[in-house]
């Protein structure tokens, strides 16, 4: 099965794409646990942003998705159309940034 190695900080909950012992967000040391997650998750919620700070192209979509091991991740969503809470998304990382890609031909899980 397709799996993804990530690290989650035990202090702030942040998830990073690689196995590392220090948290890149809150800067605590030796605070992460390594997790192997199935990168197929469900979209918990989302929004499409039409008004952004100057210099950022709109629209774009962002959201939270839930994965195995009770991991919730915030990421950019790869498309703005036909988004639904509960739809199945695949997680991948692009330059370290989490991207949620809706999968076609998949029914809702909730």
């Amino acid at each position: 099965m397709n799996t993804l190695q990530i690290s989650q900080c035990q202090f702030c909950g942040s998830v990073v794409a690689s196995l590392q012992s220090d948290c890149a967000v809150c800067k605590q040391r030796n605070c992460t646990v390594a997790l192997t997650v199935n990168p197929i998750g469900t979209l918990y919620t989302f929004t499409v942003i039409y008004a952004a700070p100057p210099g950022i192209a709109t629209p774009y979509a962002i959201g939270y998705a839930d994965f195995s091991e009770r991991v919730r991740l915030f990421g950019k969503i790869s498309q703005c159309d036909q988004l639904r809470v509960g739809m199945i998304v695949q997680l991948f990382f692009e330059n370290g940034a989490p991207i949620l890609q809706p999968l076609s031909n998949n029914g809702d899980v909730e």
């Binding site: 942040s14 967000v25 918990y44 919620t45 989302f46 929004t47 942003i49 008004a51 952004a52 700070p53 950022i56 774009y60 962002i62 959201g63 939270y64 915030f74 990421g75 950019k76 809470v85 940034a97 989490p98």
Partner: peptide, 20 residues
């Protein structure tokens, strides 16, 4: 904050609540 770098705005944070 990584969420801000990914484009989360103040209205966006409330919109996430609204969609759910």
């Amino acid at each position: 904050e990584p969420e801000t770098a990914l484009g989360l705005t103040m209205p966006g944070s409330y919109a996430l609540i609204a969609q759910r």
